[in-house]
Design a protein around this nucleic acid. Sequence first.
DNA 1: CTGTTAGCGCCTTCAG
DNA 2: CTGAAGGCGCTAACAG
Lengths: 343, 343
Amino acid sequence: MTTPEARPARRVTTVADVADAAGVSRQTVSNAINAPHRVRPDTLARVTAAIERLGYRPDQSARSLRTGERRTLGYLAPVDDPFDPNPLMAGFLAALVDAAGAEGHHVLLLRPAAGERHARAVIDGVVAARQVDGLVLADVLPDDPRAAHAARVGIPFAAFGRTGPGLPQHWVDIDNAAATAEVARHLAARGHRRVAFVGAATALPWLAARREGFHREAARLGLSLAPALPGGDLRALLRGPDRPTALAADNDLAALDIYEAARAEGLRVGLDLAVTGFHDTPLARHLHPPLTSLRLPLRTIATTLVGRLLGQLRPAGPLPERGVELPAELVVRDSSDHPAPGP
Amino acid sequence: MTTPEARPARRVTTVADVADAAGVSRQTVSNAINAPHRVRPDTLARVTAAIERLGYRPDQSARSLRTGERRTLGYLAPVDDPFDPNPLMAGFLAALVDAAGAEGHHVLLLRPAAGERHARAVIDGVVAARQVDGLVLADVLPDDPRAAHAARVGIPFAAFGRTGPGLPQHWVDIDNAAATAEVARHLAARGHRRVAFVGAATALPWLAARREGFHREAARLGLSLAPALPGGDLRALLRGPDRPTALAADNDLAALDIYEAARAEGLRVGLDLAVTGFHDTPLARHLHPPLTSLRLPLRTIATTLVGRLLGQLRPAGPLPERGVELPAELVVRDSSDHPAPGP
DNA sequence: CTGTTAGCGCCTTCAG
DNA sequence: CTGAAGGCGCTAACAG
């Protein structure tokens, strides 16, 4: 019964301490925290003061055990190599933690165990151990196995990237096509007539959408589109009298490749050749000339994801399922701000 | 036994379920998990099978409430802008989650609330709510306020970056000086005689150590050191017959600046001018020519940090306080692999 | 080696 | 509006 207290278990303040200090019952302290409107103002003030003075915060484990709420969201990205991380991850995570924090939630970082290629085990583990109220999934594909498994085991989730028809439609995504369409308009407005889109030939839906959005808008504007190049032979693309005068890349690193190729061909980026990127990484500001790029609204994305996730948890009943598309912001810099070179 | 289970009130398996299924008491299940050696092998097998079959995992909140162990580490980086994140953060975090996971721990992401410049409140909150067993602090300075506050409130921590004399010495750091000294030797071995170090004039100890390590080793090797340039006027540095033939940068983005300046001066990076970076970001591989850089042992750093942190928690008593320095790995690429140009 | 008992800290009944 | 029980799921003590 009397525990010897072998460990240096720091004595930590509890409801009882606060109740004693404020001269009320433990119950009143709980009410003051969770249902302040049911406590008489002067009592409330006394309790609040005691809480403040003692630095009291409810033990989250005890609270969770009682209420079932963990106040924690799990974040699960696709498996990647620490040495080649998703360029967005760091910035997006910061925004996600801020957004979750604004709603009183924390973010728990999840990754499949080393060697595991599938995320099922992590999801099962965290669900069975009841460590999170829901999941935020990054870089979600239409038939994403993480989303499928989350839906199967019944843990609420919100996806960055749109889910396919068979899955819950709680997703947020950039309007990639609209973003690159804006790039096409921007280039046309600077007088460019021959343009091309440079990006990996991939089935990744967000990259495909960027290409499509650019191509469609360029066609609508009557621009001449250089054919997509196999093998990414940029230097060949930049040769000849009919070379494009503007190149839009599907990410900033690809834009760097364009810079290199342009120089190798003796073209001045910005003057002889306009270039744009995607993501607006710090690289964009470091290049010479600085790179026009598309900035993702990380804060809005994070806030929206958290909102759609927590909305599913509210007792009022789950939100209607609905995807949300958000616009990217075109940041024009010197790499594409000059008039197109003469024909 | 297929239950529809449509409601979010998912019935979740508990010790009692496992005990029933295995025909033992709840306690035996607990023993099977936490002290298997005290359970008869055949009983253990039966219990284990039941656990497996039912997909049982102890509720972490209940377990934490009982034992005091959260099995969660908090990660706290310096406040930064989501649009200009620490280039290491994403990769290091991935390694940290892996390392913690290998020890049965999760990682909770911590950030000061928006607008807050100090981390005290986050630390106090997470300690008072008992959500983590310890903290991993990134980019720690000798007199870091996060470390100071963690020490003050008595929450164990491990620091990436060395702490000052007044603070607990549970830190892990790169041996920055040794890393850049190796760069100096590498350049000398390629025949370079006039070199320079390019980096921000800052008091950040890790950047200062990189500069010092390079300068000291270059002097020891009898290399001629171009003076540190105010305002980072790289182009001026690269002019004249006595220009350096090799430049070492304190990070990869600074190396990019050097590439730009070299081209502006008509120098070919790799042939006329050797360049090296630091961090080995994906940028290094994308540059033309690919950039020699220093790769941080992210996995070892993470493992060591987790080890030093968990070591403080073990009942055996805290570890002796001791900092750990780890070597970076020089990855030689084409930007510095050619013989120095003739004088 | 197994089962019984008790309580971690909190919040939700139910009385007063 | 406040006080008195009870139990969330688990595990550390003891009893059998």
